[in-house]
Structure formats: C-alpha cells, structure tokens
Simulated scan of single mutants.
Amino acid sequence: SYNNTPLLRNRLFEQEYFDVERVEVLRGPQGTLYGRNATAGVVNMLPNNPSDRFEGMLKGEVGNYDTRRVSGMINVPLTDSFAVRVAGAYT
C-alpha cells in the first residue's frame, strides 16, 4: 500500500518513489490487519507529510548517452495549520 491506500495492481519495482518518510515491511499473512483474505505480507510506503518549515531539495544526475535527471521537493507553510508539499522528477 502507499500512504495506507492499497495498490491493487502494484508495480512495486517499476515505479519510482521519492520524498518517502519510511517503508514498513510486514511479513506473513496479515489477516488481523487487512481482513481474512490477505494471504501474504504487506509493504507500506509512507510519504513525508507537510511540515511547518519552508524547505526544499533539488538533486541532479548526469549519465551516459546524454542522460539527465532532476528530482526535487518543496515544502511551503501557508498558515499555522496548513502547508503544501510537492515532489517530482524529470528524466
């Protein structure tokens, strides 16, 4: 699941994840947590939540055959109780 939302057709190893707070791996049948039809373990990925500080991150990569990649994140607090956090990548 991603942010407690089940990924029904998961492409876990085909996607890119950035700005992730933590990854939880629960092994074995998780019938108690996810219902009796859950037959295997679960991988939970939790993204970073917006914070009350202005912050940003930018990372650039250069590779063979003119490969370029840029990824980044920005967190903007708008009020004392509301903030926006956006992350993205370009290849």
Rank of each mutant, 00 (worst) to 15 (best):
D52W: 05
A40L: 08
R36I: 04
V86D: 07
R36H: 03
F82W: 10
L12T: 03
R68H: 13
T32E: 11
D66C: 03
N64Y: 10
F18Y: 09
V76R: 10
P50F: 04
V76F: 07
R11W: 02
Q15H: 04
D80T: 12
V43D: 06
M73C: 03
R11Q: 14
S71E: 15
G35T: 09
R85V: 08
I74N: 05
N4R: 12
Y90F: 11
D66N: 14
T39H: 07
V42H: 08
A87Y: 04
L46A: 03
A38L: 05
L26N: 06
T5M: 06
N3I: 02
V70L: 15
V76T: 12
Y90P: 00
G60S: 02
G88I: 02
V76I: 15
L8R: 07
T67I: 09
S81A: 14
A89G: 13
F13G: 06
Y17E: 07
R36C: 00
N48Y: 06
G60Q: 02
E21T: 00
L58W: 05
R11T: 12
D66T: 07
P29I: 02
T91W: 07
E24L: 10
L7H: 00
V76M: 13
V70N: 11
Q15E: 14
V62W: 13
A83V: 02
N37Q: 14
A89R: 13
D19W: 01
E61T: 11
L58T: 08
R9Q: 12
N3F: 04
N10Y: 05
D66S: 14
N48L: 14
N44K: 06
N44R: 08
S51I: 10
E14M: 07
P77V: 13
D66F: 09
V62D: 05
P50W: 06
A38C: 09
F18D: 14
S71L: 15
N4F: 06
N37F: 08
S71Q: 15
T39D: 12
N64F: 08
V70M: 14
N37W: 06
P77E: 15
L33W: 00
G60V: 01
S81N: 15
E24P: 00
V23E: 05
M73H: 03
N3L: 04
V42L: 12
F54G: 07
M45W: 02
R36L: 04
F13P: 00
R22V: 00
L78K: 05
I74G: 02
R22L: 03
G56F: 12
G88K: 01
A38G: 00
Y65C: 03
M57S: 13
A87D: 09
A89I: 09
A87P: 00
G41A: 12
D52R: 10
E24F: 01
Y2E: 10
P77W: 13
S81Q: 15
K59H: 04
V25K: 04
M45Q: 12
G63V: 05
V70G: 06
T79Y: 08
D19G: 03
A87K: 08
A40E: 12
G56V: 02
P50R: 03
T5N: 06
P29L: 04
N44S: 05
G63I: 09
E16Y: 04
N49H: 09
K59P: 00
M73E: 11
